[in-house]
Structures are given as structure tokens and as C-alpha cells.
Design a protein around this nucleic acid. Structure first.
Length: 478
RNA sequence: CCGGGUGUGGCGAAGUUUGGUAUCGCGCUUGAAUGGGGUUCAAGAGGCCGCUAGUUCGAAUCUAGUCACUCGGACCA
């Protein structure tokens, strides 16, 4: 009965994955709906995850020499229109400011959907000599895209992200930057979020508006659908020319610099939920969990229990663990369920019986494994357990990815595999957009990426039979 | 934007077919006992039934309009 009651708040993922996802977002207090469609409230616990992501990534960016700055949120229409492909790609989902105070504006202002154009205008003013390069910039901000449908974390009209924008003297250097930042993203996803990725290049159809090349990391969710977790773009000198950003190079020649941009958003939190979560709720990777261990005093009004629990919490805090002690007036069982729902990686139970024996109970969120531990050992054991949870989550997600990636030799086979199992289907491909459209039309899958780790699955395109150029991954995407 | 569904205390629902002045569960408040998987008992507070207009002696219930949310589809660097 008690067991049943615990799960009644969250729909089983096997019953309805979409509903399960929404339940977790709400019940774990990550997010809430606001009065405006597609605009969400990041609640403290959800925002804390983002803060951890920011803290870690920001350090990684700076390690590679990037500097943070902040650009305005409004873009004059004329500026947005300078690069043709870019404006065509974004125009359908722009929101506009047309009135200021009482007055209609002479030129309407776009609320940034991304900031390439603003950066370009700025770069034009500050890049004049080869000595001004490279410029390695990043900003943390929110952007606005007027999506028709929205889902918590996965598709907001306003969402939080970071966008890196860099300028380089040579094509090679800019390409290296594009690849390097994709690697930073992949490293972060795998080692901090425990989400294994497939790295690769996007097809022309799927690439960023105005980019020459788009690289992406693709992750597989628990329901075997794909989530694009981060992208890194190489622009060549297209925007430089469109915005007339030029400088004098070492040979006293006028040159156009080469540009990149790369971005990653709060969508990742949706990825964490759908990669690691289970029917009891959220499961957080220890490295980004706002609380890594929760201390639950049992029979806490009995003499000495609370003091002992606080002492243990403080010791672990001193050992560098993010600890929370739950002293609220709820029954222990209620607290167990609550913190499970919120995905806290480790739970420490401490009651009168334990105190007598100088021990406590440690429970892993990922496996449910429960063990008695001597209080002396906590400082050494807790970090080890957190690492074990982190690794356990990665291994499980990795298995899901490998077990659900299949080669196919024909469109029919790809379609059948998708219908029967889902997941990623890999085929050879001729490079024609027509084949991508056909795959979408007949099998419901879009191209995910052409992985850097290419495999030779055959000579011919699985869709049209013409000579193949690349091995490509297909999937149903979020 | 196209189609389906739903709007009733904070949340989830019943009541709508056949009009008669709103019911239940959870949560909340107070008190007591409990405490190792959502603890129990007692006493309370809280709603002009999404909004507007109409029909009627009388509307949560019928009619028209409107708004919001939601699920599919289309769209989505």
C-alpha cells in the first residue's frame, strides 16, 4: 500500500513516456508553467542544476581562453537581415518589439533568437588588425523563439543558454575551434552528465542557418528518441563578408576573418531527466546534483538524534560533499520518497539504533542498494559511492545507446527497425537531400548526424541505391 | 496554423445527459500521539463552477461567442 502510494504521483514511463516526463518536471519541482504559453518558470531546484552546469562549463570555456561578455537582447531588423540564409532560417520564429513607451518605433526590433548578427556588428568595430585576432567570446543569456508547441526544458519560447562566438585569422584555426568546442561539449555531457554522445556533422538540410558546417552531439533518451544536446558551427567568412568585417593582415592585405559559434541550452536538463530518470522520479548525476547526499534523521525528536545527524552532515560538508539535512516535520518514509523523486544520488539514514552502534544507512538512488556503514568511514566511502553512481549512470545510458543502434541496408529495413524497436538506425547515404526527405516521409526519421567515427556498411545509399558517400545516423528526434 | 479533448477551493476529480443554489480525495491550518518506505486521530479554513452575453422564476448544468491549457499533425538553426 505504501509502495503504491509512492508511485501514484508519477505516471509510469512504460505507460506514457510524455506524461512521465511532465510529471517528473513538476513533481521534482524543477519547473512550472507561467501565464504565457511556452514561457516556463525555472524553480530553485531546477535552476540549481543549471547553475552547476554553468559553473562547470564556464570554467571549461575559460580554460580554452574564452571571455564572457553580454550583448543587448534587441536586434534592429536591418541588422538581422544582412545575412540572407540566417534571416530566412529565423524569421518564422522571431518576436518583435514595435512600440516603445507611447511611440511606435521607426524600425522594429527583434528579440534575439540567437546573437550572431549582434556579435558581427560588434566585431566590425573592434577587429581591424591581425593583432586583434582571435576573438574568443561567450555569453550566458536567454533567447526567444516563437515555437508553436512547447515542452518543459525541451522546447521553450524563452530558454537559457550560452552562445560562444569566435573570430579567427585562418580557416584552419576556426575549424579547429569548431571541433574543439564540440569536444568540450561531448566531454561535459559524458563526464559530468553521464550522457554518452554521438559526435558528427549535420547534413546541409539540418545545419544552422548561415553556417557552412554544423557539428552536433546527439544523445539517446530512455524512450530511444534522439536529443540534439549541443551544436558547434563553422561559418567560414560568410558573415564577415555580409557584415563587412575586415582587417589588415600581416602582409598588409585586407582580409575577412573566419567565424564560429556554438551553443548549449537548458534543454540539457530535459536530457538528464530522460536519460537517467525512472518510475520513482528524477535521477541526477552526482557531479551536477544540487544536493549530492541527503541526511534523514529517523525519530528525530528523540534525545541526541538531531545533533548526531547535524554532526554527520557537517563532517560531509567539510569533506566537500553537497549535503542537505532534512529536518522537516514529515515522516521518514515521506522524506525517502520525496528525495528519491528529486533524484538525490545518496541518502543517509541515521536513527537511535544506528547511533548506538556508530553506524548509519547509505542508500544509492540509482540502484536502491542499501548498506550499513560505520560513521568513521563516511569521508572515504561517500565520495567513492558518488563516483560509483556517476559511472553506473553512464554505463547504463551507454548500454541503451549501443543496444539500440542498428545498421540497415535499405529504407524498408530502416523503417522496420524504427517501428519495431526505435533508436538510431545507421545506413550508408549518397548525400542527396531527396533521400533525407524520403526517409522522413516514409520512416518518420530525420538525419541525426554523419558520425566522425565512420563505418563502412556497404557501397550504396540505403535509400536510392546510388554510390554512397557517408555513413549516417537516423532517428526520431525531440 | 489544422483536428480532438479539457476548464468546478492550492492540486486531482464527481456533478452537466434530465436546470433547483456544489460533493469527494489529496494538500493546507491548529492540537496530540507517532517516526527505519508517502504515520494516525481530532478540530478547522478555503469555491460567485475559465470569461462574456443570452434563455429561464431559477444556470456549474441549456444556447452563442470568447479565452486558456492539453494531446495528435504541420512547423521547429
Amino acid at each position: 500500500m505504501a509502495k503504491d502510494k509512492k508511485v501514484e504521483q508519477i505516471t509510469d514511463m512504460e505507460t506514457d513516456f510524455a506524461q512521465w516526463y511532465t510529471d517528473v518536471c513538476k513533481k521534482a519541482e524543477l519547473i512550472d508553467y507561467s501565464g504565457v504559453k511556452g514561457m516556463f518558470i525555472y524553480r530553485p531546484y531546477g535552476y540549481a542544476i543549471w547553475e552547476n552546469i554553468q559553473r562547470i562549463l564556464d570554467a571549461m570555456f575559460k580554460e580554452k581562453g574564452h571571455e564572457n561578455l553580454y550583448m543587448p537582447m534587441l536586434i534592429p531588423e536591418s541588422l538581422l537581415q544582412k545575412e540572407k540564409d540566417h534571416v530566412e532560417g529565423f524569421a518564422p520564429e522571431c518576436a518583435w518589439v514595435t512600440v516603445g513607451g507611447q511611440d511606435k518605433l521607426e524600425e522594429r526590433l527583434c528579440i534575439r533568437p540567437t546573437s550572431e548578427t549582434l556579435f558581427c556588428e560588434h566585431f566590425r568595430y573592434i577587429i581591424h588588425s591581425w593583432r586583434d585576432l582571435p576573438k574568443l567570446y561567450n555569453q550566458w543569456c536567454s533567447v526567444l523563439r516563437w515555437e508553436k508547441t512547447s515542452r518543459p526544458f525541451l522546447r521553450h519560447r524563452e530558454f537559457l543558454w550560452q552562445e560562444g562566438h569566435t573570430m579567427h585569422a585562418s580557416q584552419e584555426e576556426a575549424m579547429r575551434e569548431t571541433e574543439q568546442q564540440l569536444d568540450v561539449y561531448a566531454d561535459f555531457c559524458e563526464n559530468y552528465l553521464a550522457m554518452p554522445v554521438v559526435r558528427g556533422q549535420k547534413t546541409d538540410k539540418e545545419k544552422f542557418s548561415g553556417a557552412e558546417r554544423t557539428y552536433a552531439i546527439e544523445c539517446m533518451m530512455h524512450d530511444r528518441k534522439a536529443l540534439q544536446a549541443g551544436t558547434s558551427h563553422y561559418f567560414g567568412d560568410g558573415f564577415s563578408r555580409a557584415f563587412d568585417i575586415h582587417y589588415t593582415d600581416k602582409n598588409n592585405q585586407q582580409s575577412f576573418p573566419f567565424q564560429t559559434s556554438w551553443g548549449l541550452s537548458t534543454r540539457l536538463i530535459g536530457g538528464i531527466i530522460m536519460t537517467h530518470g525512472d518510475n520513482n522520479g528524477l535521477v541526477l548525476p552526482p557531479r551536477v546534483a544540487p544536493t549530492q547526499l541527503v541526511v534523514i534523521p529517523v525519530a528525530m525528536h528523540k534525545e541526541g538524534v538531531l545533533d548526531a545527524a547535524r554532526a554527520v552532515a557537517n563532517r560531509l560538508k567539510d569533506a566537500g560533499i553537497r549535503v542537505k539535512i532534512d529536518e522537516s516535520e514529515q515522516s521518514p518514509g515521506w522524506k525517502f520518497a520525496e528525495h528519491e523523486m528529486k533524484g538525490v544520488p545518496l541518502r543517509l539514514e541515521l536513527g537511535p539504533k544506528d547511533i548506538e552502534q556508530a553506524q548509519c544507512v547509505l542508500v544509492r538512488r540509482d540502484s536502491g542498494e542499501k548498506r550499513f556503514v560505520a560513521l568513521d568511514e563516511l569521508e572515504t566511502l561517500v565520495p567513492q559511492l558518488l563516483e560509483a553512481v556517476q559511472q553506473g549512470l553512464f554505463d547504463k545510458a551507454k548500454k541503451n545507446l549501443t543496444d539500440n543502434t542498428f545498421p540497415a541496408q535499405s529504407l524498408e529495413e530502416a523503417k522496420r527497425l524504427q517501428e519495431e524497436n526505435g533508436g538510431f538506425i545507421k545506413t550508408m547515404w549518397c548525400g542527396e537531400e531527396a533521400c533525407e526527405l524520403r526517409m522522413k516521409e516514409e520512416a518518420g526519421m530525420s538525419s541525426r548526424c554523419m558520425p566522425f567515427a565512420q563505418e563502412h556498411l556497404g557501397e550504396h545509399c540505403a535509400i536510392c541505391g546510388k554510390p554512397a558517400k557517408k555513413m549516417i545516423y537516423w532517428g526520431v528526434a525531440y
